[in-house]
Design a protein around this nucleic acid. Structure first.
Lengths: 136, 136
DNA sequence: TCAACTCCTTTCATTTATCAAGTCAAACCG
DNA sequence: CGGTTTGACTTGATAAATGAAAGGAGTTGA
């Protein structure tokens, strides 16, 4: 269902999704038209979910990247879930997890002040453990 | 340094990085050439770090998405770092963190068997706490 | 006021994408 | 075996996007 050429196409598009179909074709030894057809199939199959960019969050002013493990006191998660919906600017992902905690929240903040205020509000709905990303 | 139009451009490219410059221009009320110029500047400034695709990992056969908190016994992290370099197929990100643990490892695995073997090898170099992603 | 700059638009030549046939090989089936 | 079907690719023609050059409008500062 997914041959070596398709794999190469995914690799190339991961590296540069704005490559022309002609160039992509050259890299995988096809014409642009054939490459384009392959890509269309990968989209139809749902393997390629979308085309996006990598944005440098630090240059956007988000200097803090954090993971917050959430432990909700009660079995009612709704207050927490409602809360984070109001904080979309800071939230990158909210993963429901098994293991130590109920959720793993990946966030970004412009300053310690913003982080502090966020944690204060968060604490009304859940307990947490904070991990700040230092690197990579 | 970054005006509202630039912000809109980043939003549009995040949603679809393969949009044509002409279409992008229409969305932000510029000509294609002007939009193209803006994008070139965003690239030069390093705000746009690259163009990529979102791949459906489940359809690629990676059914398990996990976060592993790493606690190295010794202060010497090299054995762990060398180990994960040999496991690139499974590693999405390796974040150095402050807080509970030394690293936060985001990984993907095709099966519980692969996960199990990975953890067994990992345990030779570090202790860990495993969280499996259930959702979102 | 003038010059230098920035940012945008217009125009045009070039490149790229797209659509419609047409080719080829493998698989299927009487 | 021969014929048909199917899937994946190529070729060729046309429409669309891109990139470069020229120029205009607004801003800044001497």
């Amino acid at each position: 269902m997914l041959d070596n050429t398709d794999q190469l196409i995914l690799d190339e598009l991961s590296k540069n999704s704005r490559i022309t179909m002609k160039e992509l074709g050259e890299k995988v030894h096809l014409t642009g038209q054939a490459a384009s057809g392959r890509v269309a199939k990968l989209e139809d199959n749902g393997l390629i979910e979308g085309y996006t960019i990598k944005v440098n969050q630090t240059k956007l002013g988000y200097f803090i990247h954090a993971f917050i493990t959430i432990i909700t006191q009660s079995t009612y998660h709704q207050p927490y879930l409602s809360f984070i919906k109001t904080q979309e600017a800071y939230i990158i992902h909210n993963y429901k997890i098994s293991g130590d905690g109920c959720y793993l929240l990946e966030c970004k903040f412009p300053s310690n002040k913003a982080l502090g205020e966020f944690l204060e509000d968060l604490n009304k709905h859940a307990n947490y453990k904070l991990s700040i990303v230092i690197n990579k």
